[in-house]
Design a binder for these strands. Structure first.
Lengths: 191, 191, 191, 191
DNA sequence: AATGAATGAGCTTTCATTCAT
DNA sequence: AATGAATGAAAGCTCATTCAT
């Protein structure tokens, strides 16, 4: 989900990208600002210029960043697909690959950033919006691949929860194969 | 999942129970020991007699505690059920009720306690064991209700990941109805 | 200085002996009561029966214990000696052996117990008394071996400070040879 | 050894100086960070900018600081001296004065800081290096004052251990006169 | 815009001691 | 005499944030 960030990016982007990477592994509360700053090789005081409200602003930027990446992955999986099953299977295999690549402690970025943070309105609303975005994107692809609209929405929601839950199980078992086995649960249309 | 704890319980149990409740809501890193202690109405120093290694020992006890509760809920849902669909639907409705009862920020207790904590072997292994216990328990009920063994295992795993993912979505949407809609994804046997 | 303590000794003695051993290595402030208790394989609450004022009483007992051992070593070195030089050389070699045996972090037990503890009157007075005992004991041996009284006292004091200082240097260099080289400084009578 | 520190010094220096003063009196384990901070009139969190590893880094800075002072005292005693005996006697008298000035609980700063601290490599190696520096400095002065090289080294080592041991005895007896009597032990060359 | 110092509340943990049995 | 629980102050350290330059 997080390709190597080349150095021409702005300081602000580098910060958001580094934060996303760390939050995803350890959760919002598990990462300190100094850890983020030192990973991004930035001095102590430089955060509040880019993110006025500090850690929470940074988390929102990081989640937004991560969400864009996930949307890209969804597109990459579905655009070349011939059928919905094709696309969704590819999506899980891509996530499994990512899981191996990023370290087996990483979970869903948005859960790690927003749902493990302070329980305030802004975080919750953004997580809801992002999750809805992902589901809607999958549903759109499903419709393009020929599924009727109400079924498309259901199957997209189903995919989302299985991806989320599968990711947790993959983390607990430290095995990306868990994710590769998920598609078999998604082959039938919801009743 | 967490009924009111009457006061005849031991200090140790009260501590584990309080910790479970708080970890579930805010995650391992999001809860301070002083918060746990003050909620349990215990003084600062009294933790380390019961949990020698401190917070991490307490988290393990809390997760074990929470796991037992979840197994009880699974049993309560499936024992009186006539069919697997019956039992599984009841389970999700029970979880939805719990979700409303405990506050809409609560997620899966074991994820919140173990997967959001320090990424060490003991936590990970326990989370794997507990998840496997839940899946196995559901599979056992499924077999008792007439499902063939390989299908039972698959459907139990499917149920587990949908419950986990559904819980996250319910948190993001602050709505227990998300959980009540999950059973429709579980009616068909995996391909 | 601290031979293996056989198990028929009283609980109180075992406690004092264990404390002496630990204080000598880490200093009064560097050792916790729980460490002493666990080393002596005694339960948490059992200290205050034997040492009413707690840690400080225990330290006094430990220092007294250690002092007795040191007096024994002085006697062992000087009793069979033909000359003062003989006895004093043997004493340093015995201390060097002890240093190797007990671990190269150990220093003078009385300094470690009393001079690194709280700066109260009882500790200071006892350390003065113990140091005087040691010096007097050496002076007595010196007289027995034919030295005139005022010289005996001076040479004993000289020996004491060189032993103390030599022990520090041996600790810093982690080498018992430092102690074995001390006798050459003590061959001439003070001017 | 520790003249009044004027306020134009940096926060870091003030911290090291205050720490040296307190460690010297109570030992590494006997002084809390909050005591150091409050003595230096600095707030709780300001230590870790200057001393990244906290107390241990601070102790190393304090010992280095104290060592420099001791080297200065050695120079002050020997530079104007006509003979080695002159210089060494002056040195002990200077130390006695210091002892009275700083409070009779103070011992050798380096012993108090490094040898009573955690028994790790860095502390031990630094204490060895510092002690060697002091001995070498005295030996250099001895050679300048006409002593042949091997004797100079021996007499410097002798001086060192007598100073160390004498300091302990002075502490136990609460009397600086103990130090003033030490030179008589150092008048003869080692055999 | 950028920086390093400052800040004090908070963290987990250990301390010596007391209590009830 | 012996024990394990209780106790709260204090330990060393990290936190997110603010300030002055």
């Amino acid at each position: 989900m997080m390709p190597a960030m080349t150095k021409q990016h702005s300081t602000k982007d580098r910060l958001a990208w580094t934060a996303a990477r760390l939050f995803q592994e350890k959760g919002y509360e598990g990462v300190g600002l100094s850890e983020i700053l030192s990973n991004a090789k930035l001095p102590k005081g430089s955060l509040y210029h880019h993110f006025q409200k500090g850690k929470s602003d940074l988390a929102i930027a990081a989640a937004t960043f991560a969400s864009r990446e996930m949307l890209r992955i969804i597109d990459d999986a579905f655009v070349p697909a011939k059928t919905y099953e094709d696309g969704m299977t590819t999506l899980f295999f891509k996530c499994a690959k990512l899981f191996d690549l990023m370290g087996k402690w990483n979970g869903c970025p948005v859960s790690g950033i927003l749902l493990s943070g302070p329980r305030n309105g802004a975080f919750r609303e953004l997580s809801e919006a992002i999750f809805n975005d992902w589901i809607t994107r999958v549903a759109t692809h499903a419709e393009k691949l020929g599924l009727p609209e109400p079924e498309a929405q259901d199957r997209a929601t189903h995919l989302f929860v299985v991806l989320q839950g599968g990711w947790d199980l993959a983390r607990a078992r430290q095995s990306s194969d868990v994710l590769r086995e998920m598609p078999k649960f998604l082959r039938a249309a919801p009743a």
